[in-house]
Simulated scan of single mutants.
Amino acid sequence: MKVSLFITCLSDAIYPRVGEAMVRLLARYGVTVEFPTVQTCCGQPAFNSGYWKEARTTAKTIIEAFEDCDFVISPSGSCTGMIHHYPKLFEDDKIMYEKALKLQSKSYEFTQFLVQVLGVTDVGASFPHKVTYHPSCHGSRLLGVKDEPMALMSHVKGLEFVPLPFAEDCCGFGGTFAVKMSDISAAMVSEKSDHIKETEAEVLVGLDMACLMNIAGNLRYRNEPVRVMHLAELLYEGVK
């Protein structure tokens, strides 16, 4: 299979170790991952702000970047979810609409690809720590990614999973929402941190670095000794 990595802006610019963990984990299953360098932002900030013309420009770049591959995998449910909006952007352009549908059908969030495509739920990892999990809004609600991360964590030796109270509540990031309504966003992430503290977990994991960055920033501000990781990082650290 020809698999391409859609790294996303945050992972590319701030958290490259997430992409590295994904690629190295997949290599253990004989999957070689390509990286089209022409890829850019998925267009979600423009799309959510009502700038659909600009969103179409970036969407076309993404569609062309990944046209010649069998699967596209990403460490972000949010950015993968944006690809699912592409057909809506091109409803008046038959050719681009068909291309958008094709890209949508072969795009997967990382845990989706591991579990649904490769059939892997046990990577052979060991991680003897107390862990809780934040299910990001777009991944869980738009893509329906719920069982896959839980299946993967359930097979990690030594991992003690602690459910997060009110786990499905938004962390308050929401991209431009955090800028336009910063006071509400700050209150939401503070509440999320309160619930994380309740679990007494050593580690918080998730599937979207935007949400994890927001939560990690609040935890650091409060001097809470909780390590924040993408699930791909946890799994790779556990098999090294």
Score class of each variant (00 low, 15 high):
Lys157Ser: 15
His155Met: 12
Ser193His: 06
His138Phe: 09
Leu159Gln: 05
Glu198Asp: 13
Gln112Tyr: 01
His155Asn: 15
Lys197Trp: 08
Phe161His: 11
Lys106His: 03
Pro87His: 13
Leu143Asn: 09
Thr121Asn: 05
Asp93Phe: 02
Lys106Thr: 04
Glu160Thr: 14
Gly119Gln: 12
Gly172Tyr: 02
Leu118Gln: 05
Asp92Arg: 08
Lys180Pro: 09
Leu152Val: 11
Ala151Lys: 14
Pro135Lys: 06
Thr199Val: 14
Leu142Thr: 13
Ser126Trp: 01
Glu109Asp: 04
Leu101Trp: 11
Phe90Leu: 05
Met96Ala: 11
Pro163Glu: 00
Asp194Arg: 13
Asp92Tyr: 02
Asp122Tyr: 07
Thr111Gly: 07
Leu89Asn: 09
Val179Tyr: 12
Lys157Gln: 14
Met96Cys: 05
Leu164Cys: 06
His195Leu: 12
Ser126His: 10
Phe110Gly: 00
Ala125Gln: 00
Val179Leu: 15
Ala167Trp: 01
Arg141Ser: 08
Gly139Tyr: 09
Asp122Thr: 08
Ala167Thr: 04
Phe113Asp: 00
Met181Pro: 04
Ser185Leu: 08
Ser190Glu: 15
Val117Pro: 06
Glu200Tyr: 10
Asp183Val: 13
Ser140Thr: 12
Ser185His: 07
Lys157Trp: 07
Gly175Ser: 11
Glu98Val: 11
Thr199Tyr: 13
Asp122Ser: 08
His138Asn: 11
Ala178Asn: 13
Val120Gln: 01
Cys137Met: 00
